[in-house]
C-alpha cells in the first residue's frame, strides 16, 4: 500500500479484481511471452477459477487479455466473440486437479507459426498477478516491471555475461530468478528491471552464444 491510488483504484471492468482484472493481466502477459496473439489457446482453470469463472467473467477477461486489451477496456464483456472474429480459438477447461495457489490459470498457446508455449500463473488479489511457470521452467514475473526472459545453457559465467549486457545499458535489475531443468542442460532466467528495456538489448543478447530464447515483456 504505497500510494493513494492503490486504495482509490485501480480503474477496472468488474466484477472482481482477482478473477476479472487479474485474469486479463495473466492472459496479456502470456501473450507477450508467446510474442504474438495466439491462434489457439487451451485455458486450464484451477481452484476458485474453475468454480467461478463464468460468473466473474474470467473467460471474457482472458479472451480480452489475449487480444491485448487493458483492464479498463469496455469491450471486455464482448471479448470472446471479438476473439473468435479475429481467428483466436479459445477453449476453457475447468479442472479439479489440486494446485498450490487457489487462483491458478494455465494457458496452452499455439501461434500462427505453430510455436507452442505453456504458461502458468496465479492471481494474488487486488489485480496483482505472478507468472510462475513457462513450459517446464519455474519463473517469477509480476508485470509491474520491465522484464527479460532468457533461455540459456547452464554453465559457470553465463549469468554474468547476460547481466553484463544489461548493466552496460545502465539498466537496474530489481528482481531476478534463475531455474534449470537439469545441471549443465537448459536453464531459464527472468529479470525484472526498473528501467525501460529497449530492442537494442534484444539484438545484443540474441547475438550471444548459448542463448536459445530472448523475450522482452514490457510493464503492464
Amino acid at each position: 500500500m504505497e500510494s493513494v491510488f492503490d486504495i482509490i483504484g485501480p480503474i477496472m471492468i468488474g466484477p472482481s479484481s482477482s478473477h476479472t482484472a487479474g485474469a486479463l493481466k495473466l492472459a496479456n502477459m502470456a501473450r507477450a511471452i508467446l510474442g504474438d496473439t495466439p491462434t489457439e489457446v487451451k485455458v486450464n482453470l484451477y481452484g476458485s477459477f474453475a468454480k467461478t469463472y463464468k460468473g466473474h467473467g474470467s473467460d471474457r477477461a482472458i479472451a480480452a487479455g489475449f487480444l491485448g486489451f487493458s483492464t479498463e477496456d469496455e469491450r471486455i464483456p464482448e471479448a470472446i466473440s471479438i476473439a473468435a472474429k479475429k481467428g483466436v480459438k479459445i477453449n476453457f477447461v475447468p479442472s479439479n486437479k489440486p494446485v498450490d495457489h487457489p487462483n491458478t490459470l494455465e494457458f496452452e498457446m499455439v501461434d500462427k507459426s505453430g510455436l507452442k508455449i505453456i504458461v502458468q500463473g496465479i492471481s494474488i488479489g487486488g489485480g496483482n498477478v505472478i507468472i510462475k511457470k513457462i513450459d517446464n521452467y519455474e519463473v517469477n514475473l509480476t508485470g509491474n516491471y520491465e522484464a527479460l526472459i532468457v533461455g540459456h545453457k547452464d554453465y559457470p559465467g553465463i549469468i554474468a555475461k547476460i547481466t553484463q549486457v544489461i548493466s552496460s545499458k545502465n539498466i537496474n535489475i530489481a528482481y531476478m530468478y534463475v531455474s534449470r531443468l537439469e545441471r549443465g542442460k537448459d536453464a531459464m532466467m527472468t529479470i525484472e528491471t526498473d528501467d525501460y528495456i529497449s530492442t537494442d538489448i534484444y539484438s545484443t543478447l540474441s547475438s550471444l552464444p548459448d542463448l536459445n530464447l530472448v523475450k522482452i515483456i514490457h510493464r503492464l
Binding site: I7, I8, G9, P10, I11, M12, I13, G14, P15, S16, S17, T20, A21, G57, R60, E72, E74, I76, P77, G126, G127
Partner: peptide, 21 residues
C-alpha cells in the same frame, strides 16, 4: 451493480466495496 455487470468502476478499496465511497 455496474461492477457486477462487468462495467467500468474504481475499486475503493476493492471492487466488491466500490459503491460505498
Amino acid at each position: 451493480e455496474v461492477n457486477a455487470c462487468m462495467g467500468l468502476v474504481v475499486a475503493c478499496p476493492t471492487a466488491g466495496s466500490c459503491g460505498i465511497l
